[in-house]
Amino acid sequence: MTDSTVFQEASNVLTEATQASVAQTEAAQALTAEVANKTAAIDEKVNQAIALLNASLDIHIDGLFNKRIVSEPAFQIDAGTLKSYTDLSVEVNGVIYSFSEGSALALPSSVTVGTDYAIYATPDGLVVSANFTVPEGYTASTSRRVGGFHYQDGEINEYSLYDLRYYPDARNWLTGANDPRGMARVPGVGWVDIYYLNTTPDLLGTSAFGAQIADGASPPKKPQYWGGDGVVQYSDFSQYTASRVLAAYGKRLVTTHEHEQLAFGVVTGAKVGSDPGTVQYHADTTSKFGIVGATGVMWQWALERWDRGNGASGYSWMSGTDGEGQRYTAGSEGIGAAIVGSAWDDPEPGPRTSHWSNEPSTSHSAFAARGRSDHFESC
């Protein structure tokens, strides 16, 4: 083989190697570009996911009120001291504050019987105040109302404790605001007004200590939701009227079955002896759940109505609906309406005491009413 032949073969080998190298370089560049494109696409997806996560976190942080225990209020009485029953995380003006289980809450230096108190989360801890707008020394930016309770008979009613995720579902139909004041939760019943319905529920709420009791001699003022102006009173206090008034505040009358439970713990047979006029406390007529005047003070309208006829004969159209239509009943007393609890001078007051001879249109000075609402809780 001549030198020229060897040189030519070497040149061919070198050319082939160069071409292969160029091809490999181009393939590597293409692969690098593909990887870069895919990396950019992945980065975009990641950024989208982060944005969605941040948005989700913003939603949950705004208004955050987190507690580990759902089926109990966040606050309870422990050996006479008000404490947080669980660890709490609460957002106040964009800042999250944590409060440990067992944290003690100091009551105001002076507490008043028959008063509702609010619990606030603040940068300084959990604060109790009778002010339902902001606690003393704080503003709306440095505090947030997260619960509350009713103080009666020299102590906190433990059944009245509530928080933002555990409370009576008693929504004022005019304002849309939920009003937990003056209520206690009773097993198998729901939340019950501690006190009788009063004559000025738009002003005081439906359950207020010391207020004038709404009854046949002192009918309540018409709620603004039903067209009231703060002056006009109903002409009577029939079962119809009592039901109408309570409905404006997201409540209804209790049933005879519910009264049996909410009045548990009273002294059967105990009674106050005279028309009280205003809501007052008497130990013997107050139930285990702090329901004042459950028996032996005023009869209370119950929810039940029934047909007194035989269902077949003697029926005709009758008035007696406070001007809202007529009733097809067996005579003028064809519909029965129950009352419960017994009055100040009537016989046999007790949790299961009931009276079944009245009509829903009856109005009497010894007939009062008490509201009841459903329970709400969420995780």
Rank of each mutant, 00 (worst) to 15 (best):
Gln212Glu: 15
Ile213Arg: 06
Ile213Ala: 05
Ala214Gly: 03
Ala214Ser: 05
Ala214Leu: 01
Ala214Pro: 03
Ala214Val: 02
Asp215Cys: 08
Asp215Leu: 06
Asp215Ile: 04
Asp215Gln: 08
Asp215Ala: 09
Asp215Tyr: 10
Asp215Gly: 06
Gly216Trp: 00
Gly216Gln: 02
Gly216Ile: 01
Ala217Ile: 06
Ala217Pro: 02
Ser218Ala: 14
Ser218Gly: 09
Pro219Lys: 05
Pro219Thr: 07
Pro219Tyr: 08
Pro220Trp: 05
Pro220Ile: 06
Pro220Gly: 11
Lys222Asp: 11
Lys222Cys: 13
Lys222Gln: 12
Lys222Thr: 13
Lys222Gly: 08
Pro223Trp: 03
Pro223Val: 08
Gln224Thr: 11
Tyr225Asn: 10
Tyr225Arg: 13
Trp226Arg: 13
Gly227Cys: 15
Gly228Thr: 07
Gly228Tyr: 08
Asp229Glu: 15
Asp229Ala: 12
Gly230Trp: 03
Gly230Lys: 07
Gly230Asp: 04
Val231Ile: 14
Val231Phe: 15
Val231Trp: 09
Val232Phe: 15
Gln233Ser: 15
Gln233Val: 15
Gln233Lys: 13
Tyr234Pro: 04
Tyr234Asn: 08
Tyr234Ile: 06
Tyr234Thr: 04
Ser235Met: 12
Asp236Ile: 01
Asp236Met: 04
Phe237Ile: 03
Phe237Asp: 01
Ser238Gln: 00
Gln239Lys: 07
Tyr240Trp: 09
Thr241Ile: 12
Ala242Val: 01
Ala242Leu: 01
Ala242Gln: 01
Ser243Tyr: 06
Ser243Gly: 10
Ser243Gln: 07
Ser243Val: 03
Arg244Leu: 09
Leu246Lys: 00
Leu246Gly: 00
